[in-house]
Design a protein around this nucleic acid. Structure first.
Lengths: 341, 341
DNA sequence: GTTGCTGGGTTTATCGTTAAACCTCAAGCG
DNA sequence: CGCTTGAGGTTTAACGATAAACCCAGCAAC
């Protein structure tokens, strides 16, 4: 693996292109960035030269002069969940596609969110991508506002005044999936909800309640347990539910991991699925199609949402941080019916 | 009433630190990079200034002068598998920790690997991280060598002459897990192997054979099926195996996704697990503990391996590394026994 | 025929950092 | 005593792209 300094020919600079096209470097820059300061004729020659040499601008140099921002910080919770893994993977891919540098930071607790954001800014992040529950931890705080950073939150419950939001209608989705269970004749429906400091969890719970009440089946307190979006917490909750004197005939879990746990608890007791128990998940991560029986769940388009969040951030940074009200992007979810119901 | 921050706080540059410490910018640089060209006394003053101002070097400027390499390309196959997702997520985190920019590129087929590598180089990647099967696609080719890029392959079968390798002993691990099944009294052991153009797959199959032959139970051709590391391919294979006149009493799958598929096929037939059928996976992804029954599997420390690969690349780039033979880093695997056996 | 403007460029200065060359002073040495 | 040596700096010159200032030919207007 002998690796002498890369051959000088390795990197094509703007000067090389300029020489090839017989113009100044500045003109090449103008053409490349399409500022309009050039004639048709020169443009063609420059483009030809760019093409011939395979010129790719050096982003470090661009960044140095303060042109394009390129670093996006990502705040995530260090929880073992499919959603987090999938989002991290999606963010890595989407960032790469856009030539951004992703700075992913695990945040231990909501209290640390602000410090982490600050550290990211000091380390050169231009914008922030925020996963639950840190949207709530940051939004509205004066200190966060003082950072003066563009931020986008994925999978939140509602629009926020100080950051972009990219989300699905959690309440409607949750309602829809509960309705589906009711339509299938389930009458004793239990819920393993997410932590109530996640705004999306709250919405999901609300959606379930909507559906149940609409059918005259009020939610019973002993049939609702708060999980923490982890498999372990889901298992604990499911064990408690199935151990009741009058166990439920369906469980609505607030994410796939906890739904998988519910399947576990049912398998352990030798229940036949979905005859004795129907289970639904949320997110449609890879997990949903790997467990048995495959989970009926709500598809949340994670890749698309991540990409959208990045695009919004880029746009905001390009226009300069001034003024515009943050966009709320509502993506479409999809109810996916599988064997678990 | 707090008013908005006056300015997007001007970043602290090396000059500010220099002024504060009463030395030249170069001296600050020297102290920061610990080159040794300074006295105890100045060092203390400079460090104090750095601390007081909260100086963080501007990586764009650093990069511009060619000091630190900061972009790592990642070649991955666009296959739905837990291993890929987990590796992407791990790479995103490990890159962020090291201040590197990750450029992840999906590669459609081994033939495209070289083109993608070339594109990455043109886009400014300093080094390459390679996932199977692209290690084999690149290694040994003269064109790849001509790129003159440092590369590290994760999860390969053996050391390679022209890139770093970070791996576990797949053969031994596979042998161990097969031995475990034999020890549990399984006598008709089937194998769902990975694609044979993945070097690690080959090793895993070999390990199984080792174990079986060591116990006088030669591998039967109809009990070995090549999967493609996907759940779908695993399901197909498992269906065929369980449909045999003399079905196996154990299935060794070459990854967790295919093992999960084997569980599916068994559940479908109403088999009792692990009584009627034992199943083992490979990788110990999150999946292994989410399916029911939980998978006995080989733990491959993905996060650690990814981090190690990046460290090796950084080291190589820093030394400019003339002539050094590429390192082969053998990580320790762990046999994890769970309910599926 | 000066003045003013405008399309299509070029030149210059600059971003923050570091490699390399250069400076200075004191100590060591034959 | 003159010469080298080296520790501990400083100065200079990049790195590549771009913003801002500048230049200039031609054309229109008064």
């Amino acid at each position: 693996m002998q690796r002498p300094r890369p051959a000088p020919s390795a990197r094509v600079t703007i000067k090389a292109v300029a020489a090839q096209a017989g113009v100044s470097a500045m003109t090449v820059s103008n053409v490349f960035n399409n500022t309009g300061k050039f004639s048709r004729d020169t443009r063609d020659r420059v483009l030809a030269a760019i093409d011939a040499l395979g010129y790719v601008p050096n982003s470090a140099a661009r960044r140095l002069v303060g042109a394009t921002p390129t670093r996006v910080g990502l705040l995530y919770a260090g929880v073992d969940s499919m959603f987090i893994d999938a989002t991290l993977a999606a963010a890595a891919v989407a960032s790469a596609e856009r030539g951004l540098q992703l700075m992913a930071r695990k945040v231990a607790s909501p209290q640390d969110a602000l410090d982490t954001a600050r550290a990211l800014q000091r380390a050169g992040a231009d914008a922030l991508l925020v996963l639950p529950p840190f949207d709530l931890a940051l939004s509205g705080s004066a200190q966060f506002l003082a950072l003066n950073m563009a931020a986008a939150a994925i999978a939140t419950a509602a629009p926020l005044p100080d950051m972009f939001t990219v989300r699905i209608d959690n309440r409607a989705a949750s309602r829809a999936i509960t309705e589906l269970l009711i339509a299938k004749g389930r009458r004793r429906i239990a819920i393993i909800s997410g932590p109530q400091d996640h705004s999306d969890s709250v919405e999901r719970l609300r959606g379930c309640r909507d559906a149940l009440e609409a059918h005259g089946m009020p939610l019973m307190a002993d049939l609702v347990i708060d999980g923490r979006f982890t498999f372990a917490s889901g298992l604990e909750a499911a064990e408690r539910l199935l151990g009741l004197d009058a166990p439920p005939d369906a469980i609505v879990a607030a994410n796939d991991d906890m739904a998988a746990a519910a399947l576990w608890a049912a398998h352990r007791r030798g229940l036949s699925l979905p005859r004795d128990l129907a289970v639904t998940g949320f997110d449609d991560t890879l997990l949903a199609t790997r467990v048995w029986p495959a989970l009926t769940t709500v598809r949340q388009p994670i890749g698309q949402m991540t990409a959208r969040a990045l695009d919004l951030l880029l746009l905001a940074l390009q226009r300069g941080s001034g003024g515009a009200h943050p966009v709320d992007s509502l993506e479409t979810y999809e109810l996916v019916e599988r064997a678990s119901t």
